Computed example of a mutant assay.
Amino acid sequence: MCLGFLFQIMKKDDCFYLGKIVKKYSFKGELLAKLDTDEPDLYDNLDAIFIDLRGNLVPFFIEASQLHKSDLLRLKFEDVDTEADADALLKSDLYLPLELLPKLEGNKFYFHEIIGFTMKDENFGLVGKIVGVNDTTSQALFEVDRQGVEILVPMNDEFIVKIDRDNKTVIVNTPQGLIDLYLSQ
């Protein structure tokens, strides 16, 4: 991995959330991080990572790392050699630059990637502009703005027909009347 990104000031908007440091692993400063990914093995050979310390992304160089129990990553950072050093990093969020995200194809997408895309429904027509994703519910929702009206569309694989990256469009096929519910209020 190229370390050139470490010499830039990184903002959260330029990064993606990788996970959180959840507990100490040893008395030598090792930590365990819970990764927010379906493919944790993509991240077991990192050279460096950004840690959110009081709202600032601080680069940490990694001496050693290995997967531990499927979705945990065991990390040993340079200059984190004691239990006290490790304690200072507990519960911290981990970030990497967006350019390190693996490219997705077809109908798979990252939430940040589709912000600003236009949503079209095969039955309804033009729905509006995707302005956000609500992933705090049991099912993630597209947040779509239609001339000032918020429309929430479930991110259901059965509803998503196509992610058209070239035209920045998400084509869906929602149940009849779903979009009309928001417009008749």
Rank of each mutant, 00 (worst) to 15 (best):
M1S: 14
C2L: 12
C2G: 11
L3V: 07
L3C: 05
L3R: 10
F5W: 15
F5E: 07
L6W: 01
F7V: 03
F7L: 07
D13T: 11
D13K: 11
D14W: 01
Y17H: 01
Y17K: 00
L18S: 00
L18C: 00
G19I: 00
V22Q: 04
V22P: 00
K23W: 02
S26D: 06
G29L: 06
E30F: 03
L31S: 03
K34F: 08
K34N: 08
K34I: 07
L35Y: 05
P40A: 02
D41Q: 07
D44M: 08
I49W: 01
I49H: 02
I49D: 01
I51D: 01
D52S: 10
R54W: 10
L57R: 10
P59E: 09
F61I: 12
I62Y: 04
S65Q: 11
S70K: 15
L72M: 05
L73K: 02
L73V: 04
L73T: 04
L75I: 07
K76I: 05
K76Y: 02
F77E: 02
E78P: 00
D79T: 08
T82G: 10
D85K: 03
A86D: 04
A86E: 05
A88P: 03
A88I: 07
L89D: 06
L89A: 05
K91I: 12
D93T: 05
L96C: 05
P97S: 06
E99Q: 13
K103T: 13
K103Y: 09
E105P: 02
N107H: 07
F109H: 07
H112K: 14
E113V: 14
E113D: 14
I114Q: 04
F117I: 06
T118W: 03
K120R: 15
K120L: 14
L126K: 12
L126D: 09
L126Y: 10
G132V: 03
G132P: 02
V133S: 03
N134E: 11
T136Y: 11
T136L: 15
L141D: 04
F142Y: 06
E143C: 09
V144C: 11
R146Q: 10
R146Y: 04
Q147F: 13
Q147K: 15
G148P: 10
G148T: 13
V149M: 08
V153W: 05
P154G: 09
N156E: 15
N156G: 08
D157Q: 13
E158T: 14
E158H: 12
E158S: 14
I160R: 05
D164C: 08
N167Q: 14
N167V: 11
K168I: 13
K168P: 07
T174M: 06
Q176T: 15
L178F: 03
L178C: 03
Y182V: 08
S184E: 14
S184H: 12
Q185Y: 10
